[in-house]
């Protein structure tokens, strides 16, 4: 990466973050804020799936269950033991990651459609545990009165998280962290190893990549993101019940990743914008919402099986390459661009 491009990347990131931070001020309104918070949480959850599906090529259908583990661990610690959010959040994230690590060992022995089925099974089992372990999870009645994060005291002022606007900044900070981690994974040896495993596991092995190790890492990171999303969800909604963490949650995450383009860092963000915000815009016809959702999904997968992000990327590179045709022959920058484009798809 040249200095110039490195600087450009940084500038892009800073502009994007500044825009996101200003978004509530530009758009305003408590309902818009609610949508923004929910979207950020879904992007974090979907980014976890993106790492295991988009980069490693393993379809996990247990995302909803992991989301639930994060939510329940954090909520139970906060409600039953009265612990602060700032302790329960890292604990819930670590617990979910640990669960993914432990489950990953046996589960990652399977491949392809079998892996999808095992993880689907895990999701169903976790959701039945949430439903039936009444003594701890209160079953279908759910857990209510989950406290908002405790205020941070800065000495001269304290930041409370009981308003939507501060919670948005909290969720945004978590989202930026997740995005940076994903970006780092994607652009370093780890990400390349994962993509190699996705393309051809045996061949990756001959290049000195030990697939089980990298798959475990990917699955652990995926679980950690899901747990973090679950924890943020629980402390925002302040009430959790098993139906939020069932098979449908896993399917929603999958749909977001695929519609947004699996294997692109920004894919889940794009997918979330389309699949959370567009049906939301059709709220006046709320009974048709799910139908519209299904049609969008069907059309996208039919005409853009690689996802929207990829199609937009291709369109953009077509426009750019029209201008840069001469460059491609002279310098390395044009061909380098193409290579990166190929990695992103």
């Amino acid at each position: 990466m040249t200095d110039r491009r490195l600087r450009n990347t940084w500038i892009t990131w800073i502009i994007a973050i500044a825009l996101l931070a200003l978004l509530p001020i530009i758009l305003g309104g408590s309902y818009i804020l609610h949508l923004l918070i929910i979207s950020c949480i879904w992007i974090i959850l979907a980014q976890g799936l993106n790492i295991i599906l988009g980069y490693t090529g393993l379809l996990s259908l247990g995302q909803g269950g992991m989301f639930g583990i994060g939510a329940y661990v954090s909520a139970l610690l906060a409600v039953k033991l009265g612990w602060s959010f700032w302790i329960t959040m890292p604990l819930a994230t670590t617990a979910t990651a640990l669960l993914g690590f432990i489950i990953g060992y046996p589960v990652l022995r399977t491949r392809g459609i079998y892996f999808a089925m095992v993880t689907l099974g895990l999701g169903v089992i976790l959701s039945e545990i949430f439903n039936n372990w009444i003594g701890v999870t209160r079953g279908p009645m759910g857990i209510g009165d989950i406290p908002y994060p405790t205020p941070i005291n800065l000495g001269f002022t304290s930041i409370a998280f009981d308003s939507k606007i501060t919670y948005y900044y909290l969720v945004l900070a978590a989202l930026i962290l997740v995005m940076v981690v994903t970006y780092r994974i994607a652009k370093t040896t780890l990400g390349r190893a994962l993509i190699a495993i996705k393309e051809d596991e045996v061949l990756a092995g001959t290049f000195g990549i030990f697939p089980p190790k990298f798959k475990i890492i990917a699955f652990t990171v995926c679980s950690a993101f899901s747990g973090l999303a679950g924890c943020l969800y629980a402390h925002y909604i302040t009430f959790i019940s098993p139906e939020s963490f069932g098979v449908m949650a896993s399917i929603d995450a999958l749909v977001i990743v695929v519609v947004g383009s699996a294997g692109m860092v920004l894919g889940p963000a794009l997918g979330t914008i389309i699949l959370i915000l567009v049906p939301e815009a059709l709220r006046f016809a709320s009974e048709y919402r799910m139908l519209v959702y299904a049609v969008i999904l069907g059309v996208v997968i039919m005409y853009m099986p690689q996802g929207l992000g990829c199609s937009i990327g291709r369109l953009a590179s077509k426009i750019v390459s029209g201008r840069r045709v001469a460059n491609a022959y002279i310098g390395t920058s044009g061909s380098n661009q193409n290579l990166r484009g190929a990695n992103g798809s």
Partner: peptide, 15 residues
Amino acid sequence: PHVTLLISAIAMMLF
């Protein structure tokens, strides 16, 4: 690939 078919099926299923 299976994943694509699966998602197409899920769309029809939801519909």
